[in-house]
Write a protein that binds this DNA or RNA. Structure first.
Lengths: 234, 234
DNA sequence: ACCTGAACACCGTTCAAGT
DNA sequence: ACCTGAACACCGTTCAAGT
């Protein structure tokens, strides 16, 4: 009677832990409460287990973070697997799809950038991207530069050096306050707040991301054309 | 006699702490030993003082990091203050100068991206950049998009999603190992290792940074030209 | 005004012990 | 094979006390 009782000591999960369950729970936890909430102790409590139990499924905290990233990258690889076609639209769709996944796991960029080892999922993703460029007539050399030029944008995100997630309470007021010391910022702020285009009244991250991506893709296309015409005339 | 003795209890610094000394020491410490070494306790010991003494000059750890960033940005503002001229070469020189400063403080990108408040030094830097674009005939609207497109590249750095700081021991061997699962990566690796251009035998970060920067600046110039010709025909 | 010392609430991680 | 419990070496930060 006492042994068959469904144990109430484990509030969250089934009867047994696994590496997969640990990683899944960690990702959910970070999505819900932010990456700073994901400590070994608190994650363990969420799983109804002592902190040290996690170490049976994950070597240490760094390995946990590696695993969390690979979960997200897996999601991206799955979501983009079927995207083919001409290099530019295919690339654009792949990257914007990756972006959608990243937006669901906003802690990922910060963690990804502290990883030293890319891991298998990154390789899978890049291999597909490189394939698109090769099919599009880019040389291996140019493709290499292109990957560097894309940087993290290849994964659908950029880290802005400021936090524009929420607009200032009164952009026009802010512009007036800055007018003395920073006349150019003030002028830009005032213009943005007057602009009917940006219907949100502040930076539209999706628009800005696509703008920059298109500038890059067009520029890279020109580099490719210059390369092929150079090799033709030679 | 006992009171006039030059106190040996403070190994590093002069007789008294100041906010400036704290920030300067923290920057040096991070430059030397990495940002993860900069804890309140260890920084204090380096200054020959107890940890809690720091709180007289800095509100808390976050404020310390804010201050450290502002030290570096000050350095950038000073180093770029005199750079003028045509928008494209001026911008290029400003950004590459900022990059040189950043390379001396390699912890800065990581810390900058965790700041929520840009701070006065960021405003000074951006105000100068915006001025260059305005002088170059960019509309305020386009300038706004352009700043987003540059992102952290405006400050002379990009976060690569992988760590290429040191080349693999044998790129050709790595290429062969990857050939099965990641044929495109393997082809690229093999090409890079054969390429005489990249004399380092691996990624030349400075070259890649300038390549991407030039692609962007050229693309932005085309956007400006499209904008002005549109407004002419209207 | 500035600094110290003890204490508190956390971390990640070890080790030996349990089943 | 998997989990627990106690312990260790760290964190940032508080508070009261010293000068």
């Amino acid at each position: 009677m006492t042994t068959t009782e469904p144990d109430a000591a484990r509030p969250r999960r089934g009867p047994r832990l696994s590496r997969d369950k640990v990683l899944q729970a960690a990702v959910e936890f970070a999505d819900d409460s932010g990456i700073e909430s994901v400590t070994m102790r608190r994650l363990a409590r969420r799983l109804g287990v002592e902190a040290m139990a996690l170490y049976n499924h994950v070597a240490n905290k760094e390995a946990l973070l590696d695993g969390m990233v690979s979960v997200v990258l897996n999601e991206i690889n799955d979501a983009t697997a079927d995207i083919r076609g001409a290099w530019k639209p295919a690339l654009r769709r792949r990257i914007l799809t990756a972006r959608q996944v990243m937006l669901r796991h906003p802690w990922t960029p910060g963690v990804l950038e502290t990883r030293t080892d890319p891991g298998a999922q990154v390789n899978r993703y890049y291999d597909a991207l490189i394939g698109l460029f090769r099919d599009g007539g880019f040389s291996l050399d140019l493709t290499h530069h292109v990957l560097h030029a894309l940087g993290t944008r290849a994964f659908g995100y950029t880290h802005e050096p400021w936090d524009d997630s929420q607009p200032p309470p009164d952009p026009a007021l802010l512009a007036r306050q800055m007018a003395g010391e920073y006349p150019n910022i003030a002028a830009m702020l005032e213009n943005v707040s007057h602009d009917a285009n940006t219907s949100l009244g502040w930076c539209d991250d999706q628009f800005e991301f696509e703008f920059a991506l298109d500038v890059l893709l067009e520029g890279l296309e020109r580099r490719r054309d210059a390369e092929t015409s150079r090799s033709r005339t030679r």
